[in-house]
């Protein structure tokens, strides 16, 4: 099939960007979206033009590196899918496709479609862990965890940190990402020891990274490639309110 691609091009974080249009013929419906871009890049190289920079790595939907807004939807039209697992079957001959980077103050553009998502790392560094060091931990079966709780924690833990939630949110809120991690760790007995401290630190880091706040439009859940539920945001709110009310700070 033939496609008209309109891709955001931006030299680096300090430059102005703009859309450029490219015509691409002979796209096979079996190709993944990224393979289609590979072909475009090979074509650009052969024409002595600079190929489009885009982030990608595992190409099997788990590393969370790929990140594009395709025709206005983060990771494209197929729900529950990362860009790398989106296949060209989802498009038809003659389509116009607009490809844009994640847009958020907290995710500055590095080049073309590549953004800097280290804000997520810093949120985790602020508290997204259980403070245990290597060794000296109890036997794995010492604390039974009810299966439904373990399953809920796993649902939240499947987050791949791609940032589609932030990209799709009109406020660039990171609540789904933070909610997923807070949920995973506060549900499990192992994470409960420091759950109050954790949620307060993570939310404060989230705010200082320049993410917006949640207005409950639930776009994040709709585009999340791992279909993480917004109930994790409710749990985040709950944990935060409880932790704030119960924190042992003095007035």
């Amino acid at each position: 099939m033939k496609l008209a691609l309109h891709i955001w091009r931006q030299k680096d974080s300090n430059s102005e960007g703009k859309f450029e249009s490219y015509q691409l013929d002979q796209v096979s419906p079996d190709m993944s979206f990224l393979e289609m871009l590979d072909i475009l890049n090979e074509k650009l190289i052969s024409e002595d033009k600079e190929p489009v920079a885009f982030d990608h790595d595992c190409r099997e939907g788990i590393c969370g590196t790929c990140s594009m807004v395709i025709n206005g939807v983060a990771h494209g039209p197929q729900g529950g899918t990362t860009t790398c697992q989106l296949h060209m079957q989802s498009f038809k001959d003659g389509d116009d496709i607009y490809i844009e980077p994640w847009r958020a103050t907290a995710f500055p553009i590095v080049k073309d479609l590549v953004t800097d998502r280290s804000a997520f790392d810093r949120v985790i560094q602020a508290g997204g862990y259980v403070s245990v060091s290597t060794g000296g931990v109890p036997d794995a079966n010492a604390t039974p965890v009810p299966k439904p709780i373990a399953d809920l924690a796993m649902d939240a833990a499947t987050c791949i940190g791609c940032g589609a939630c932030v990209a799709a949110c009109k406020n660039s809120s990171a609540m789904l990402f933070v909610g997923a991690k807070v949920s995973q760790l506060s549900l499990l007995p192992q994470g409960q020891v420091e759950k109050g401290r954790r949620v307060i630190k993570m939310v404060s880091q989230m705010d200082s990274e320049g993410f917006g706040n949640c207005t409950n439009t639930f776009e994040c859940e709709a585009v999340c490639p791992k279909e993480i539920s917004v109930s994790n945001i409710a749990r985040l709110n709950r944990e935060y309110i409880a932790a704030t009310l119960a924190s042992d700070e003095e007035s």
């Binding site: 309109h6 859309f19 807004v69 025709n71 206005g72 939807v73 729900g79 607009y98 844009e100 847009r103 958020a104 103050t105 907290a106 799709a168 949110c169 009109k170 406020n171 660039s172 809120s173 320049g210 993410f211 917006g212 706040n213 207005t215 409950n216 439009t217 639930f218 776009e219 859940e221 709709a222 585009v223």
Partner: peptide, 22 residues
Amino acid sequence: MNSKAKPVKYKVKQSVKASFAS
């Protein structure tokens, strides 16, 4: 805070789930 968090909007934007009211 929100408009500071997303100063640049998408050229094409489709809402998947968000209601008009929201």
